[in-house]
Design a protein around this nucleic acid. Structure first.
Length: 360
DNA sequence: AATCCGGGGAG
DNA sequence: CTCCCAGGATT
């Protein structure tokens, strides 16, 4: 089927204005002074669902720790998760780590240049495949992310719902026809940089836009109505009671989460869903084998911790008689200084900081 | 096709 | 406080 979106569109002028604007106005970022495919790869994974400003420090630290794919492949997963601590979407770290090992094992450590091979690696989907192909290897592949869809939906007045998969495919088709073959990297990065700096979601700076003249939405004054996005999902928050459990010699209890689902393989302080307040003690006893005496402030939700002292030897004795408290869900008692060696999510980092602030 | 993954920032 | 953001994997 033929698409009419690019009919009568001045591709040459658009590309020229976009790319010269990009070269003049691009931000200097630590992953922009290299064509090392591994470095580009790491940056693109970190940039998924994450703002540039947040990524910069993580990227520097990560590349310092794992300068090559071989360093990353050799690392333990816990160590990689620790580097990712606080960045969120931790499956990205696990997948990147797995994929690095696969590249070392299968391609002698050379990131595959073939887009199809790239796409088979864990954590590399259509967008990242195109981003690495174009930025690291200068191949004219589309790298359609949310920025690109926003920019192009405005410039080309595309009113399709960008929440649907076929809309992303439509934009990939459009980019294949539009992309600058002499500099695919600058073209793709230019579109994304324009989306980040000028063609922003709620208040685009059209008066500063290098492709204002080529923009159909601006001509019609409807840029703020685009892109069309119909999906809406409400996420519900769940409150937990966090338990600060100490051994008699001061060690603190933490546990490792399961290897699937939310925050997989991350560590946390033991906790109980704050749902049925009357049976919390019962649930705590069942889950951890530890008698819990709750305090008054429980009603106030947010940062309510329950402190208790418990003897590790007694705990171990109880666990020995309770087969349902298996090795996997067993609490680990560690010295407080060692908390910094384990990967925690942001909410548990806050608990850790609360703990360390008490005698810092 | 719909839902699950986290965290940060805007309003 | 609520809403918004958005690639990839999973179901």
């Amino acid at each position: 089927m033929t698409d009419k979106t690019l009919h009568k569109f001045d591709k040459k002028m658009f590309n020229h204005n976009l790319i010269s604007w990009y070269h003049k106005n691009k931000r200097e970022l630590p992953w922009r002074d290299t064509n090392n495919p591994y470095a580009i790869w790491v940056s693109e994974i970190m940039l998924q669902q994450t703002k540039v400003d947040t990524v910069i420090s993580y990227y520097k630290k990560f590349m310092n720790r794992y300068p090559t794919i071989f360093h990353l492949a050799k690392a333990e997963q816990q160590e990689v998760l620790k580097e990712w601590e606080g960045l969120g979407y931790y499956s990205r770290a696990r997948n990147l780590h797995d994929a690095a090992r696969e590249v070392v094992a299968t391609y002698h450590g050379e990131v595959p240049k073939n887009p199809k091979q790239l796409g088979t690696l864990k954590g590399i989907g259509p967008y990242t495949q195109g981003a690495i192909s174009s930025i690291a290897f200068q191949q004219p592949e589309p790298a359609v992310d949310g920025n690109v869809m926003r920019v192009l939906s405005r410039v080309l007045l595309v009113k399709d719902n960008i929440s649907e998969q076929r809309t992303r495919k439509k934009f990939e088709h459009i980019v294949r026809e539009l992309i600058c073959h002499s500099d695919p990297s600058a073209f793709n990065q230019g579109l994304m940089e324009l989306g980040a700096l000028i063609c922003t979601p709620t208040s685009p700076a059209c008066l500063l836009c290098p492709v204002q003249n080529e923009c159909r939405a601006f001509a019609e004054g409807c840029e703020k109505k685009l892109p069309v996005k119909l999906k809406k999902k409400k996420q519900k928050t769940v409150s937990y009671l966090v338990l600060l459990i100490r051994d008699v010699d001061g060690k603190i209890a933490i546990e490792k989460r399961p290897d699937k689902g939310l925050l997989a393989n991350m560590w946390q302080f033991p906790m109980i869903e704050l749902k049925d307040k009357h049976s919390l003690e019962k649930i705590a006893e069942k889950k951890y084998g530890i008698p819990l005496i709750l305090k008054e402030e429980l009603g106030h939700v947010n940062h309510v911790f329950s402190h208790l002292i418990w003897d590790l030897h007694v705990y171990e004795a109880i666990c020995a008689t309770r087969p349902e408290i298996s090795e996997q869900v067993r609490l680990s008692f560690i010295k407080e200084e060692e908390l910094q060696d384990y990967p925690f999510s942001v909410s548990h980092i806050k608990v850790r900081e609360f703990l360390q602030g008490k005698h810092g």
